[in-house]
Computed example of a mutant assay.
Amino acid sequence: MSGHADGGAIDWETAYDNRAAVPGAGDLPEVWTAAAQRFVAETGIAPEAVAYGPGARNRVHLLRPAGEAAGLAVFIHGGYWMRNGPEMFHHLAAGALARGWAVAMPGYTLCPDASIAGIGREVAAAVERAAERVPGPIRLSGHSAGGHLAARLACAGMLPEGTAERVAGVLSISGLHDLRPLMRTPMNPVLQLDLAMARAESPALREPLPGVPVTAWVGAAELPALRAQARLIAGIWALQGADVCHVEDAGHDHFSVIEALADPESPITRAWLGV
């Protein structure tokens, strides 16, 4: 990722600036929060905030379907590891809930109060705690930085063996899979990545869990860097023998790409749940 296809140098100010690339993106946190609150009010499905650690944000929000759950569907929120929270995305659980899955949405300490490596450990602990409460297969997903974290959990050694054996699929939506380019962006004073951590925490540079299907999903209208990140994980994990699918979702930008998770019949929900 040292240059564009036309040979020009990358503008690191804008290469990963999704909010600048999408008109109206600054309003989305309020839009998402309102949609999440409306979903809870209209359905009566009250998320349970389950503590998994001592930190103020060490809570995993657990939403349960009517009846026995088919398994545990995990959605990890994005925000470049430095903003947002699970309470903004409860409405995106609608598709999985309608198909009978329990949905876990981990909160985590944000940068710079935690490192990206520390956030990965927190999310692993959150998934472990949710998995203790919901039996059956586990389907990991996440968006943007959450896509990175979902893919990171799908790397060998991140989850306890018993939990890792339950992982039945991974959906990284617009994920960051090689963190080294982010060291050059204006975000790095907050992210505090150095080369050693960027290498260690890049899923593309790690070994995937054996036998677990992975989907790298990205909007076709996203920034070139994000589309390249999806192609990268699909290609490099396929070379390691993983079952990887790469999808460019036509017409969708970095933020609209997650909207269809609320639809139980959408292709992205089906990819998440393996149906």
Rank of each mutant, 00 (worst) to 15 (best):
L191Q: 11
A216M: 03
L223G: 01
A216C: 07
W217C: 02
Q229L: 12
H148G: 02
P210M: 13
L226H: 12
M158E: 15
V212M: 12
M197W: 10
A156T: 15
R227S: 09
L226Q: 12
R227L: 12
A151D: 02
R199D: 15
L149C: 01
H177Y: 15
S172Y: 04
L176T: 08
E165Y: 09
G219R: 06
G219K: 07
A225Y: 10
C155R: 05
M197F: 09
E222P: 01
C155D: 05
R231W: 04
L179E: 04
S172N: 03
T163R: 09
R166H: 09
L182K: 05
R206P: 06
L179K: 01
T163E: 11
L176P: 06
L205D: 11
S174C: 07
P213Q: 04
L182I: 09
G146E: 01
G157Y: 10
T215S: 05
A154G: 14
G211D: 10
E161S: 13
R166Y: 13
E165W: 09
A151Y: 05
H148Q: 13
P213I: 03
Q229M: 04
P210K: 14
L171K: 05
L182E: 03
R180S: 05
M187I: 13
P189M: 10
L195M: 14
Q229F: 10
P213N: 12
L149V: 02
A164P: 03
I173F: 02
A221L: 14
P186S: 06
G219S: 06
C155F: 06
G157K: 11
A204P: 05
L193T: 07
C155M: 07
L205N: 04
D178S: 13
L205V: 09
V218E: 04
V212T: 08
L149Q: 08
E201A: 13
G211N: 09
L153E: 01
A154R: 00
G211F: 12
W217T: 08
S174A: 06
R180E: 14
S202A: 10
G162W: 08
L176V: 10
A228I: 04
N188F: 00
L226T: 11
I173G: 00
P208I: 00
R206D: 05
A145K: 07
M183V: 09
L179C: 04
E161A: 14
L159H: 07
A154S: 10
R184A: 13
G169S: 10
A220I: 11
R180M: 04
A216R: 00
A196V: 12
A150E: 08
C155A: 02
L176S: 08
A225P: 02
G169L: 07
R152N: 09
M187C: 14
M158C: 12
P208W: 02
I173T: 06
A156R: 15
A154H: 07
A228G: 11
V214I: 14
A204N: 10
G146F: 00
A230H: 02
R199C: 13
R199V: 15
G147Y: 02
E222S: 08
G175H: 06
